[in-house]
Structure formats: C-alpha cells, structure tokens
Nucleic acid binder design. Structure first.
Lengths: 129, 129
DNA sequence: CAGTATCCTTCAGGATACTG
DNA sequence: CAGTATCCTGAAGGATACTG
C-alpha cells in the first residue's frame, strides 16, 4: 500500500465529517431552530411547529439530540403526562453557525439558482460532450 | 385552518433548510474539501482522495455540484480522455463556513462525547421514566 | 398527552460488468 | 481514462393502530 494507491476514509478526507451526523442529520435543524426561536415546547407543539414530520421520527430525532446533549427533555409525571423540550446551552452554541449559514444562503442562493438554469439550459455537463 | 392547528413545512420552520441539500448532501463536503485542499484533480485522483465512494456515486455528486455551480468540470477531448475538476469561486466561498464548523467541532465534540456517555450510562431518556 | 409497535414502501447507494 | 448500465440490498422514514 503506497501513497499513490492508498484509499482514504471520508473522515480523513474531511475533518468536519463527524459533526455532520450530529448537527445536520435529517430534521435536526428544523427542530433546533424552532426550539431556539420559540423556547420550551411540549411534544405536540413541537410536532406542529417543526413541519411535516411523523411522531415516530420526531421522537427518534429528539432522542438523538438529547443523547448528544443538544436538547434537554423534562418529564413531568402528571396525568396526563407533560413533557417539555428545551434547547441546551450546547445546542445554543450552534446559533452563530446557523446564522453564518443563513448569511451564505442569502448571499449565494441566487447564484446557485442561476448556475442551475445555465446548466439545465445548456443541456448537461460540459457542452460538446 | 387556524393558527393553533396549522402545520408548517420544514422550509418555513427552518430558513437554512434549502442550503442543506446543496452543501451537506452526502459526500459533498469530502469532495469540496479535497478539491479546496489539493486543487485541480482528475476523476481518478479525486476518487482516491475522497474516500470509500464508488465511481457511480462520485459521478452523481460531481454532476450535482457542477450543476449548482460549486465545481467546474473541464473536459479535454484527448485519447485517453482527460477530465479535470476544480472548485469554483462560489464553492470557495464556503471555506469560512467550513472553518467555522471545524472550530465548533474542535470546541464542542468532546462535550457531545461526554453527553453521550452520561446518557448511555444513565440508561435512556430521563431516568425515572 | 406522549409516545410505541408494526407493517410497508421507497430509494440512495454499493457491487459488478461493460464502453467510447 | 472516465465514466454508464444494471441489478440489488438495507435502512430510513411514512401510515396506521394501539397504550400507560
């Protein structure tokens, strides 16, 4: 195995790979975003606010976020039960990053749109082949 | 449909949702990262450097990136053919964002790790239930 | 209310073989 | 070399029904 044939793992190829699973799994950004915007919410409220997600998947993602320390779950043993979800301090530390992303989006999404139209108009990769 | 029952789309719930498909689709960050680090590369080189990705999927992702204007593909009609991939200016504009992400990772990945161990050690969500 | 438990479908992505 | 063409599998996620 020499350096010209060695295959590399995606983690080696990309130092930010590990974070992606944590922060950018499906539904995690809508969940974190609404928790950050609207504060503490019960399960049903979150369900309504996060969009067209099923209860099963919402639960799965919330468990993952709780496990990773980005969200705090509080169970109140009442009847009927009350469960509240809140973004943690660690979760809140993502806010500047999300803002950065929103800025990039505002600045460059139009360029992406134009690139797509050119590409589609020209009819595929690299005209002439 | 009143405000207490209205269901919302994930795009409404999360302004950054549209960018995620563009920038954080699977394999896009390793591809962009290596193109940014090592400069212009031919298909096979990229294939070696990006990690354990198949040629088919690499082609798919490269097409998407080209279409979105993040990558430039140059076809040289020789025999054998030579194709070179390069990150575009638009693609390069993501560098600060990726750096931000790398910083967050360096600062907070350990916290995530600890949170996971606590969660797993405690045996699931919210002890007591 | 806040979830589970099942069943089911889809489809991204891998393996393999082939081509201009 | 730089891909495409096929086939195939597993795992994510939706629909639905049920429970403490």
């Amino acid at each position: 195995m020499n350096s010209s044939t060695a295959r590399v793992t995606s983690e080696q190829a990309c130092p930010i790979a590990p974070v992606l699973d944590i922060v950018f799994s499906r539904w995690t950004t809508p969940i974190l975003w609404t928790l950050n915007e609207y504060g503490v919410q019960r399960f049903v409220q979150l369900h309504r606010n996060v969009g067209t997600i099923t209860a099963k998947v919402l639960t799965q993602r919330l468990r993952q976020l709780e496990r990773d320390g980005l969200v705090v779950r509080t169970y109140h043993p009442e009847i009927p039960p009350r469960v509240e979800y809140e973004i943690s301090e660690l979760g809140r530390s993502l806010a500047p990053l999300f803002a950065h992303l929103a800025d990039w989006s505002a600045d460059n999404l139009p360029r992406v749109e134009r690139a797509r139209q050119e590409f589609d108009g020209a009819g595929g990769p690299t005209v002439g082949h």
